[in-house]
Computed example of a mutant assay.
Amino acid sequence: MTGNSTYHYISSFFLVGIPGLQDFHCWIGIPVCLLFVLTLLGNSVITVTIKLEPSLHQPMHFFLCMLAMNDMALAFSTAPKMLGIFWFEAHMFDFNICLAQMYFIHTFCIIESALLVAMAFDRYVAICIPLHYTTILTTPMVIKMGLGSVTRATLMVLPCPLLIKRLPYYTRNVINHAYCEHMAVVKLASANTHINRAYGISVAISVMVLDLVFIAASYVRILQAVFRLSSQNARSKALGTCAAHVCTMLVFYTPALFSFLTHRIGKKVPPSVHIIFASMYLLVPPTANPLVYGVKTKQIRDRVIGLFFPNKSISEKRSM
């Protein structure tokens, strides 16, 4: 054996899927496939609807369009390989492709979190300083915020695969997971992984804490502004514009927090439970987001109904 730590003695990983539930993989693949199809369909409809409807060409809907495209990218980086494992016994994963999947999954997750922060800021400006909304959230500013989200995620996650590449992998290549997750890959290394673990934890904590602090600060100011309104109807309307965003945050951050905590301090949590929640964290939010915004946002709901049921849309307009 050579002492060169950059040389890898294994060329691929074996992804187990969900340990303990291998006999049910065929059935587990059905909801995964359904979520994947609904994600692509729902987010495509949202993107096309926003593009075709001039009245939706507003900052909030531009952020929603970015979120929809990011959700589709996240689904593509996760679901096809899961379905390969569950339905076709395609457990082997090339070392470099595994690192690429890990990179894209974590990058898209951080972009998602950043977009939720941007959408919270949008709601803050719209409710707290509405007279300056058009001057603050201009199209160039929205583009810069979107590019900033992508740049932050790209740079923060990039060291993870680079640090893993320097580790030797001699014998262990079985990943007890349904996809290439950072810590699951790091644990298999035949060397000291303190740097990898410390960096991974610092990225996860900094992203989650900072983003949640910014979102919480926005909503504290929003609630203060809303409860200063004298009209009950005005308060309800203002809070209604935030309902979809709040639902999206709960769907995204709840399984993310559970997955993060169980992976590091939940020693008694069965591996199958952890992996199911970790998979839900990647598959459920992209499916739920278009449904939430389609139901909660009247402009989008009306436009979607008009696209698929034009006769119904015309009759509703005439009855108004």
Rank of each mutant, 00 (worst) to 15 (best):
F214I: 06
M249F: 08
V292W: 07
L291F: 10
Q299K: 09
P285H: 06
T297E: 07
P255S: 13
M208A: 08
I305H: 14
P270S: 04
L223D: 03
A256C: 12
A243E: 09
M280P: 10
F258N: 07
M280K: 04
A288E: 00
A243M: 00
L250C: 03
L291R: 08
I265K: 05
Y219M: 03
H263F: 14
H245S: 05
G240A: 03
R228H: 07
L229V: 14
F260T: 13
F227V: 11
Y219I: 05
A225S: 15
S218E: 05
L250M: 02
G240C: 06
I201T: 06
A278W: 08
L257V: 14
A243L: 08
F258P: 05
K268L: 01
K267Q: 00
M249R: 06
Q224N: 15
L210V: 15
F260I: 08
A278M: 13
L250A: 03
K268T: 00
G240K: 10
V209A: 06
L282M: 13
S218R: 07
V304D: 04
V269C: 10
I205F: 12
N233K: 08
V284C: 07
Q299M: 13
S230Y: 14
V220L: 12
A225D: 05
P271C: 04
S259F: 10
I205D: 02
K296V: 02
T287H: 03
S272D: 14
R235G: 00
L283Q: 09
L223G: 05
P255W: 05
P270T: 12
L291C: 02
L250W: 13
A288R: 01
V203I: 15
A288S: 02
V220R: 12
L212N: 12
S218D: 12
H274T: 11
T297P: 01
Y281L: 09
V220W: 07
N233R: 05
R221C: 06
T193W: 07
P270N: 06
V246W: 11
A204P: 04
V226F: 04
T287W: 03
L210D: 06
F260H: 06
K268D: 00
Q299L: 12
G306N: 06
A288K: 01
